[in-house]
Amino acid sequence: MPIETPLTSLLGIKHPILSAPMAIIAGSRLVRAVGEAGGFGILGGGYGDKDWLEKEITKLQASSAPFGIGFITWSLAKRAELLDIALDAKPRAIMLSFGDVRPFASRIKAAGSLLICQVQSEDMAKQALDAGADILIAQGTEAGGHGASRTTFDIVPAVIDLAAGRVPVVAAGGIADGRGLAAMMVLGASGVLLGTRFYASVECDGAEEAKRRICAANSGETVRGVIFDVSRQIWWPAPFTARTLINDHALRWMGREAELVHNVEAVAAEYATARDAGNYDVAAVFAGGAASLIHDIPPAAEIVERIAREADQILSGQRNFPGTPLAVSSR
């Protein structure tokens, strides 16, 4: 059965499951597949590749499924014209993460799109609400890619309390199955945003070797830090750092970040060569703590249906959380 929440009503979707706008690898194939399965896919606009954005938007417009487009906010501020390209496509929503949304909020809402803001603290949530956010994503540090230090079980209820029912709050970070969706709904979230789980899907445009490594990862085999941003010479603002799978490059420089910065030109050249060759002993796989829960690479539609079905069974009392003596029931 569909799980109806304020989020599903607002976005006009069947399941309260969103796919994260992972830069470049969350392309039109993934976004369309998630949307057609009843979730909500968000295109990964990332740092702002105009040609890529226009090409992927054109592909998306061939589908009737609703979709969103996501941007790294501080990077969008350097190429604000990309927002016009996105809004011309009439997405159901624009998602902004990691920066001040106020310069863009009025344009997004005037164009008729919903404004989704990803936040990592109460102060960020207050700023987003003041700017007119329609949906808040409360992102915990367990999330893959960039984020901050608050845990999912800390930040999600804090943002829910702050929002006080004014807008739906979506949980992100360390969630990969129906247990995670059910748990977040018990906390009061209206849905979940998943990155790493959809990275390991057929339609994700990530490298197959990267997907394989996600499936092989064990608990504790991710790390949050600045090593890969420094190695790519992409200087992210504080407090945002990146969570990745631990590989040889991470092990080489963990605890030696100052030395890495000192040798950045030589290391960056080595890193670029390895990345272009698909060498993931050096190149980053941006993945979250939920990687240890992921063991297969199915179609995105199967992921959506599987998570929705499992969460519904738990919430309706038909199925227990593993290891619990009593069923959780919300009905």
Rank of each mutant, 00 (worst) to 15 (best):
V202P: 00
F104L: 05
L60Y: 10
I175S: 08
S149M: 11
W74E: 04
I57D: 04
T8R: 04
I160V: 13
I94A: 01
D296H: 04
A217Q: 05
I297P: 12
D177P: 13
E305R: 12
Q127A: 15
R256E: 02
G195P: 11
A182K: 12
S106E: 15
E36W: 10
F240S: 03
P299R: 14
G225C: 00
S63C: 11
R224Q: 14
A183R: 08
G188F: 07
F321D: 01
L30R: 01
G220R: 09
H249E: 03
P298Q: 07
M185N: 01
G220M: 03
C215K: 15
I108N: 04
L18E: 03
R309P: 01
A33C: 07
G191A: 11
S113I: 11
Q318L: 03
A287H: 07
G289L: 11
E305W: 05
M1S: 11
V101W: 07
R166V: 08
T241V: 03
L326Y: 15
K126W: 08
F153R: 06
K78C: 01
R107T: 08
G173N: 07
P16F: 02
G195V: 14
R224P: 01
V261Y: 08
R309D: 05
D134Y: 12
S106R: 14
V119L: 11
R213K: 07
A182L: 09
L83N: 13
F153L: 15
V119A: 10
R92P: 01
D130A: 14
S316W: 09
A291S: 15
I234P: 00
L260E: 00
R224D: 01
I246Y: 03
E257C: 01
A163C: 12
D134W: 11
V261L: 15
W236T: 05
R213H: 00
Y199V: 02
G45M: 02
R319S: 15
I160Q: 09
D205V: 03
V328C: 04
K109V: 06
E305H: 11
A131K: 08
A89L: 06
E302R: 10
P298V: 14
V267I: 15
M184C: 14
Y280V: 01
I85Y: 03
A125M: 11
R29W: 02
S9P: 02
G174D: 06
F153Y: 13
L181I: 06
S329E: 07
G112M: 10
I137G: 13
V328A: 05
L129S: 09
M185Q: 08
S121W: 10
F228W: 15
T8L: 10
F228G: 01
E302L: 06
Q233G: 02
L187C: 13
P325Y: 10
A26T: 15
V267Y: 12
G191V: 09
P91Y: 05
V170W: 04
P66V: 03
F228R: 14
R150H: 08
T196S: 12
P298D: 09
A138I: 13
S63Y: 05
